[in-house]
Amino acid sequence: MAVTDDNVSRSRGRNETEEERADRMWQELIQEVRVAQMGVQILFGFLLTVVFTPTYRQLTDSDQAIYIVTVMLGAAATGALIGPVSLHRIVSGRRVKPQAVRLASRLTHVGLVLLLATMTCSLLLILRVATHNPYVPWLVSGVLLWYLVCWYALPLWTRHRHTSR
């Protein structure tokens, strides 16, 4: 097989400086964060309204505890997923973009884990209130497993399978 320019560039990666790579990675990261931010903000907004409904006062102590944990997880996820925006604004122009991109990426990972926990707890609470059935934990576990496959297992498998060593 003949070595072409495409093969050489793929084997060596992109021909970009550290700053150019940081700029590109920042743009990619911020697009990803926008999707997650929207989801967590909508979910968190709905969670905040629950306590002001008549149904909230009818929840069992266990369901109220699940609600409080869920709201706290949603607040933490919101903070972690909005964090990269604040980080960028504060360090912009300080010539630390590569470091900022690494930190923003870590915040995004933490935010996604917290979002996963928020969504799982929200589903648990909703199904407990809606059905009062003992199979609810099994349903929630199934959805959690699905989230883990979609969010982590498939991306990690793809990275392992298609990343050159």
Score class of each variant (00 low, 15 high):
46 F>T: 08
46 F>G: 15
46 F>W: 15
46 F>Y: 15
47 L>I: 03
49 T>L: 15
49 T>F: 14
50 V>M: 12
51 V>R: 14
51 V>E: 10
51 V>F: 14
52 F>Y: 15
55 T>F: 11
57 R>M: 10
57 R>L: 14
58 Q>H: 15
63 D>F: 11
63 D>Q: 15
64 Q>C: 08
65 A>W: 11
69 V>T: 07
70 T>N: 08
70 T>R: 01
70 T>G: 04
71 V>G: 01
72 M>N: 06
77 A>E: 00
77 A>P: 01
77 A>Y: 00
78 T>Y: 06
80 A>R: 00
81 L>D: 04
82 I>P: 00
82 I>C: 03
82 I>Y: 08
85 V>P: 00
89 R>Y: 01
89 R>F: 01
90 I>D: 01
90 I>A: 10
90 I>M: 09
91 V>I: 09
92 S>P: 00
94 R>K: 15
94 R>W: 04
96 V>G: 02
96 V>P: 00
96 V>D: 06
97 K>A: 04
97 K>T: 07
97 K>F: 02
97 K>H: 06
98 P>D: 05
99 Q>S: 14
103 L>H: 06
104 A>R: 00
104 A>M: 03
107 L>T: 02
108 T>H: 11
110 V>M: 10
111 G>N: 07
112 L>T: 08
114 L>E: 03
114 L>M: 13
114 L>P: 01
115 L>R: 06
115 L>S: 10
116 L>Q: 07
118 T>K: 03
119 M>V: 13
120 T>D: 03
120 T>S: 09
120 T>M: 09
121 C>N: 04
121 C>F: 15
124 L>C: 05
124 L>Q: 04
127 L>V: 05
127 L>Q: 06
129 V>W: 05
130 A>H: 08
131 T>H: 13
133 N>S: 13
133 N>R: 14
133 N>A: 11
135 Y>K: 11
135 Y>C: 05
136 V>I: 14
138 W>I: 09
139 L>F: 15
140 V>N: 07
141 S>L: 15
141 S>D: 07
142 G>D: 05
